[in-house]
Design a protein around this nucleic acid. Structure first.
Length: 421
RNA sequence: GGAGAAGUGGGUGAGUGGCUGAAACCACACCCCUGCUAAGGGUGCAAGCUGUAACAGGCUUCGAGGGUUCGAAUCCCUCCUUCUCCGCCA
């Protein structure tokens, strides 16, 4: 959520910044709502004050033995009470309307975010490594994994429908090895605290991180009013909701499945396991003091990159343009890995600083140097998407005979195996 | 799932209808005293909204939501959570 003060103090400038993100702020509507909010609040508070003082008067009159006076005063206060009830009802209704409207306004982009409409306008920052050379025609992960009996899409369809996969044998093991390797690297080399978190969360957690109220259609919901997490960012970031945290920064890592209904993306990436309703991800979350978050974003990206470097995968880092930025992000770096099966760079990690956008929704605060509470900053990034990383390893390490070499760093997690298939 | 107890400020914890936004203690900050250390004394210290040049002032908030009342942390109802005991269970 944006700082309401920003809207009151600098409405036009704020609208201009939101426009970079492709969001049109309804300036007139805000001004109208805020003006009546102010008037209603003043009315209501005046009545509350009148009642408070008048009610004390009742007590004083009774103590003085003036029963008749007290009764008369009671009657007067009763009338004030009725007026107050209606003033309060009006105020509450408007405050709720304003709040709902505010909850659907995206975060402001950082000044370093390039302008642009979509992913074509993203800014490539660096390309790391080189494309693997093959002296044969490389195939995609579907062909590779199916040929070694490591994936079965038909069985998955039979069990769960489209956009699910069943992994088997050494491919399933490689998938597990990747997650373990990532978790170990982040906890042992990058200073993260490992967490095991709930996969089912309540709506308020999703409101906190910004998936709700706007993006309900992307989520799976249970009939017990829980939602399946679309990312571990939700439970991890909400670890500090409704609290004042003084020991910052905190770095959390968790390996979880993620569930996305991907409404609106039918027809995209239908082949293979690139886009699934369920996938595993190792998620990194930072909670920082406000002045630390931009440096933390650079560090966070470097941690995600470290995994790709250790795996020897070719990738690039892009700075998302305004139009491609997510709802809560002030700035996002996507990491895209090279997939020989698609002859393309594809997203494998997304690292964002939300500044105080999520913190304000969660009421997550720290204390500044004067000891005053202020919203902390939250960041999140994939370190990495495990399923997509599996695809990358299979396709980049494929051999002419259909087998796949196991990257050296993964071999300890594979019982020393150097090849699968 | 059954029975009982409890939810108050950063923490512990008083408070059963107006004098309580809330005692006391701890933590924290500043000051004083004390030649280290330890200890002692004083002051301040919830948040949000509103308001002010800045103070002041006003309103809200004692798990959540309803209700009773002129007035609710305090009484009533519903819900949630935590703890203890029992049952069940990976």
């Amino acid at each position: 959520m944006l700082d309401p003060k920003l809207l009151r103090a600098d409405l036009d400038a704020t609208a201009a910044r939101l426009a970079v993100k492709g969001y049109t702020l309804d300036v007139a509507r805000f001004q109208a709502m805020d003006a009546s909010r102010k008037a209603l609040q003043a009315d209501m508070e005046a009545l509350q004050n009148e009642r408070k003082l008048g009610s004390k008067e009742v007590g004083a009159l009774m103590k003085a033995g003036d029963t008749a006076g007290a009764e008369a005063q009671k009657a007067k206060m009763s009338a004030i009470g009725d007026k107050l009830d209606s003033a309060k009802a009006q105020f509450d209704a408007l405050a709720e309307e304003l709040n709902q409207w505010m909850m659907e306004i995206p975060n402001l982009p950082h000044p370093s975010v390039p302008e642009g409409q979509d992913e074509n306008d993203n800014q490539e920052l660096r390309v790391v490594g080189t494309k693997p050379e093959f002296d044969f025609e490389p195939v995609d992960h579907v062909t590779l994994a199916e040929n070694m009996g490591g994936v079965d899409f038909e069985k998955a369809v039979a069990v769960s429908g489209s956009r699910f996969a069943v992994l088997a044998g050494q491919v399933a093991r490689l998938h597990r090895a990747l997650a373990q390797f990532m978790l170990d690297t982040h906890t042992q080399e990058h200073g993260y605290q490992e967490a095991y978190v709930p996969y089912l969360v309540q709506s308020q957690a999703l409101l906190g991180t910004g998936q709700l109220p706007k993006f309900e259609e992307d989520l799976f919901k249970t009939d017990s009013d829980h939602y399946l997490i679309p990312t571990a960012e939700v439970p991890l970031t909400n670890l500090v909701r409704d609290s004042i945290v003084e020991d910052l920064p905190q770095q959390w890592v968790a390996h979880t499945p993620c569930f996305r209904s991907e409404a609106g993306s039918y027809g995209r990436d239908t082949r293979g396991m690139f886009r699934q309703h369920q996938f595993d991800k190792v998620e990194l979350v930072w909670l920082t003091r406000p002045e630390q978050s931009w440096e933390a974003l650079e560090t966070l990206v470097s941690h995600a990159e470290a995994i790709l470097k250790k795996l020897g995968l070719h990738y690039r880092v892009v700075n998302l343009c305004g139009g491609d930025l997510g709802f809560g992000a002030a700035k996002t770096y996507d990491i895209e890995v090279w997939l020989p099966g698609q002859q393309n760079f594809r997203e494998i990690s997304s690292c964002s600083n939300t500044e105080d956008f999520q913190a304000r929704r969660m009421q997550a605060r720290t204390r500044n140097e004067q000891g005053k509470p202020e919203y902390l900053h939250s960041l999140n990034g994939s370190g990495l998407a495990v399923g997509r990383c599996l695809i990358a390893v299979l396709e980049n390490y494929q051999l002419a005979d259909g087998r796949v070499a196991v990257p050296e760093v993964l071999q300890p997690y594979m019982g020393g195996l150097t090849h699968i298939g």
